[in-house]
């Protein structure tokens, strides 16, 4: 077995893992770009994710939030096919139907820290690449932490 190191995007492109029906049938999950939500003065966050034409993926593929809380997410379908999104949300997941060339929003509430996945739950969009990640950073409130000195982390 040989392995490569270096630029991740170039490697994925070279291996044919960053698009549809190249080496793999679909686009390998987790291969998209990374984006960051914007935080307003009230702590609420906003971000946009997009489905590019014929790529069956979310861009950015990984959306990073600085902390848990409320996220106003705009979803745009620039593809020439119909998709949807089922999104994590405290209380109940949210669903939005995204016909070709459609734009909508989702109001989400999520705890941090942690990683949540969402996807287009039609056909096997999820397996072809339309599975995105929302990664929430930060720490839990101090009062929720264990009473002990700081511990080493990986």
């Amino acid at each position: 077995m040989t392995t490569t190191s270096g630029d991740r995007a170039a490697q994925l492109a070279e291996a044919g893992l960053d698009g549809q029906n190249r080496t793999a049938l679909g686009r390998v999950l987790g291969t998209g770009s990374i984006g960051y939500a914007e935080e307003g003065p009230d702590g609420k966050m906003t971000a946009t994710v997009r489905i590019p034409e014929d790529e069956l993926c979310w861009e950015p593929g990984t959306l990073i939030l600085p902390h848990g809380g409320d996220l106003e997410l705009t979803l745009i379908n620039d593809d020439k096919n119909t998709h949807c999104a089922v999104l994590p949300n405290n209380g109940d997941p949210k669903i939005i139907w995204l016909v070709n060339h459609a734009k909508g929003t989702a109001s989400l509430n999520l705890d941090g820290p942690g990683t949540y996945y969402y996807g287009s739950t039609t056909g096997n969009d999820e397996g072809r690449g339309l599975t995105g990640a929302i990664v929430i950073g930060g720490e839990v409130p101090d009062e929720a932490k264990l009473d002990r000195p700081p511990q080493p982390r990986p």
């Binding site: 949210k94 669903i95 909508g104 109001s107």
Partner: peptide, 17 residues
């Protein structure tokens, strides 16, 4: 390109149950 179709706001999943 025309304006986007308005997909509205996402709704609770259980609303479709």
């Amino acid at each position: 390109m025309t304006d986007y179709v308005d997909a509205g706001a996402a709704i609770p999943h259980q609303q479709l149950s």
